[in-house]
Each structure stands twice: as C-alpha cells, then as structure tokens.
C-alpha cells in the first residue's frame, strides 16, 4: 500500500492493462483530493482504494469510468472513512460493459461516531451492451453519527429504446444514436480530467463495435 499525504491534489489513473491500483490516502485538516480512474478494454483489474478523512473539512472526490469488453473483469473496492466531523466525500462511478465483460463495485462508507456533519455521497451506474455482460454494485453504509448527509445509488441498465427511436426519427443513424447515448452516459465522471483525456475517451467510444 502506498501512503500519501498532500494539501490539495488531483490524480488520474488510466488503466488499460492488467495492472491494479492499491491506494491509501490520509487527508488532514482542510486537504482535498480528486481521484479519477479510467479502465479501458479487455483487462483484469482489482483496485483497492482506502480514503481516511482524518482532519476536519477534508474533501475527497472519486470518479471512475470503465469502458470494458471481451472477458474483462474489473473490481473496485472502495472504503471511504469519515473519522472526524465536517468532511465531505463524493463518489461517482460509471461503467459500460460489452461482450462478456463484468464489473464489481463494492463501496463502503464508514462514518464514525465523532464525524458529525459528514456529507458522503456515492453513485455507481452501469450500462450493459450485450446479453452476457454483467455489473454488480454493492454500496454499504456504516453510519455511527446522527447528524450526517449520506446518499447512495446504484443502477444497471441498457441502451434506452425510446431515446434511440426518438433520435432515429430525426435522421440520426442507429449507430450514431447509440454512440451519443454512450457519450452522454460517460460524460459525468470526467469532470476532472483534461480535454485530451476526454477526447481520447470519445475516440475510444467511437471505436466500440455495437
């Protein structure tokens, strides 16, 4: 496990080989951290991420996007620990899986007794493009303080036929309409990445065969 400590920082991990990330960050008072994980292709990845919010007013944002295919097997295990009061954490993970690719998202939010006024949010949404693709999302909350905001949500869906028909009725071809849906779906977790990375991902989506 790597240990890091910083004032305000931002990292982006692009994972397009079978290399996993084991990360642990301890945030002190007033520190902030933004992490983005992008997982691409037919890869086997096991990411373990532990965030300890150890000082008041620390803030952590986690973003994840996986665009996976073939026999990809992607696992995220996230532990967000609110140890003290007045910290915020927000997590947004989105996955698009084709072929036989599968993803597992396990996200624990732990808010200790002393961590009043914690604001902890977590979302994990998945889009499956084939019958054999799989996505599991398991949020887990352990809340021991009473004055907190804690939200979570997880969905697994498919391309939306009504949207597709609406776009096609305006002359947008089926292939293009699907890609528009994918790009729209994938946009939200990319709020911290560079323009270059975002346009690289757009190329990646354009190349997906549907």
């Amino acid at each position: 496990m790597k240990k890091n400590s910083m004032k305000a920082d931002k990292f982006c991990y692009i994972q397009s080989s079978n290399e996993s990330q084991n990360l642990c960050f301890n945030l002190q008072e007033g520190e902030s951290l933004q992490l983005t994980f992008i997982v691409l292709g037919d890869v086997k990845v096991n990411n373990h991420i532990i965030i300890n919010l150890d000082g008041e007013n620390a803030a952590c944002s986690l973003r994840g996007l996986w665009l996976i295919n073939g026999d990809a097997d992607v696992n995220f295990d996230v532990k967000m620990n609110h140890h003290v009061a007045n910290c915020t954490s927000d997590q947004l993970f989105k996955g698009i899986a084709n072929d036989r690719a599968k993803s597992n998202f396990f996200g624990l939010i732990n808010v200790s007794t002393d961590a009043q006024k914690s604001d902890a949010r977590q979302q994990c949404h998945n889009l499956l493009l084939s019958d054999d693709a799989r996505a599991y999302a398991k949020p887990q909350l352990e809340i021991y303080a009473d004055d907190v905001i804690c939200t979570h949500g997880a969905t697994v869906g498919r391309l939306n036929d009504d949207e597709l028909f609406y776009m096609r009725s305006r002359g947008i071809s089926l292939d293009e309409a699907k890609k528009i849906q994918l790009k729209v779906f994938a946009a939200a977790p990319l709020d911290f990445v560079t323009k270059d990375t975002a346009s690289h991902l757009e190329d990646w989506i354009n190349a997906i065969s549907l």
Partner: peptide, 24 residues
C-alpha cells in the same frame, strides 16, 4: 426502411410524448 432512412426521405413524426434525453 429504418426510422432514420424514413427521416432522410422526408417523414417527420411529432411525438405525442416527446422523449427527454438528459445530457444531450
């Protein structure tokens, strides 16, 4: 013909329930 091909030929459907597309 597919819906898009019909659109290219000049058919337009104004929907009773227009579809919303968040993000686009």
């Amino acid at each position: 013909l597919s819906p898009e091909e019909r659109s290219w030929k000049g058919i337009f459907l104004g929907f009773q329930y227009p579809v919303d597309i968040p993000g686009l």
